[in-house]
Design a binder for these strands. Structure first.
Lengths: 193, 193
DNA sequence: AGTATAATTCGATTATCATCTAATTAGATA
DNA sequence: TATCTAATTAGATGATAATCGAATTATACT
């Protein structure tokens, strides 16, 4: 459970202008000037808020000629709706705690005291726990050259190629033209209870 | 749809300390010192955050001897989870818009141009729309003497007694020792689509 | 090439807010 | 009544962030 990401989501949503933008986009995509017009604000202000909304992956954009259309990413809303529902349910809270403990144990088993990965677990569940631990050092939104990513992985384990491939397979990251980037957590391979 | 309340909820949740408090309370009630201890913060800071959380009705408290126990109000979390789910669903958005328009029309029909209520609608749905409009001038958390509440209602309509009673019946407000206070929206009578 | 339009960046201003220490209130017990 | 503990209030400080006008970038059209 990523506390930081949760907080970032709420902090971003906790602004009247941004909530209004979200409601506008919930009805369908709009371009910047349209948003500025409907809200009675200037374009720089809209850009500012759209940046914040993009940081939490709530909007994405597509360009058409000269104008950029902004879209709402509904999957993020659904995901956060689920988080809130779980938070209201003591059973789910207990499950989350247990999962945290279990994952902590696996990490202790598969990493040396100085943080190296001993070997890649064979069991899928444990493997995913290890991967989630590994990517904690990567920054959301940052673009990584293949070389840079290799170097990062090598801190932990020799076989960077395998691990890098696994990152893609399990949707922790995606690649475009040899550039790697983290996916938002909603897309990651799920660890089944 | 109360934009302000939505924003207030998110703004309050958008703080790491408060999120941690919510997670703690999700496991069960705690008293102030315990929270301060677990988070490594001073009691005044905890009081500060609990006030914020109480403002959005997310926590309530019960006193036992000298110590105050704080509880999480799970219904608020469920409610907000539902809001997010709706926001992710274009159909629901459309419904909300239609409801808004309909409600606006009803308000126009039942109020004079200078804001007086002509008469109390007989149809339940319209009646509730009118009541929701009336209570917009009342402040959440404020305690109203019966006299004060009567005066407020009289701005709109002679028959303050009936309307005041309806506020209670439909759970817009509650009364304790002759003091009236607004309920949180989750408790209000629902207007069926 | 040159102009028009949309979007972004930069810098400044202003307001909000998390946290602390010190002081105060409230209740319980002896 | 005196004292202990828990909680709150008050005031100060430092950091964050919403908004705007001016300047800049990026793309399209003539």
């Amino acid at each position: 459970m990523q506390l930081n990401r949760l907080v970032a989501f709420y902090k971003t949503m906790g602004d009247p202008t941004r909530i209004r933008i979200v409601f506008l986009l919930a009805k369908g995509p709009l371009h910047g000037q349209a948003i500025a017009g409907k809200l009675g604000l200037t374009p720089p202000t809209i850009t500012h808020h759209l940046n914040k909304l993009r940081e939490i992956n709530l909007v994405y954009q597509r360009r058409d000629k000269n104008t950029v259309y902004f879209y709402l990413n509904e999957s993020v809303l659904k995901h956060q709706s689920g988080v809130l529902a779980k938070l209201a349910d003591k059973e789910e809270i207990k499950k989350m705690e247990e999962q945290n403990l279990e994952s902590q144990k696996v990490i202790e088993n598969f990493f040396t005291r100085d943080g190296k990965l001993k070997n890649i677990p064979a069991q899928r569940k444990k493997k995913l726990m290890v991967f989630e631990h590994l990517i904690k050092g990567l920054k959301m939104g940052k673009k990584y050259e293949e070389k840079e990513l290799n170097e990062y992985i090598k801190q932990y384990h020799e076989d960077y190629a395998t691990i890098r491939r696994e990152f893609i397979i399990n949707h922790y990251m995606y690649r475009e033209n040899g550039i790697y980037e983290l996916n938002p957590p909603e897309m990651w391979a799920k660890i089944e209870g």
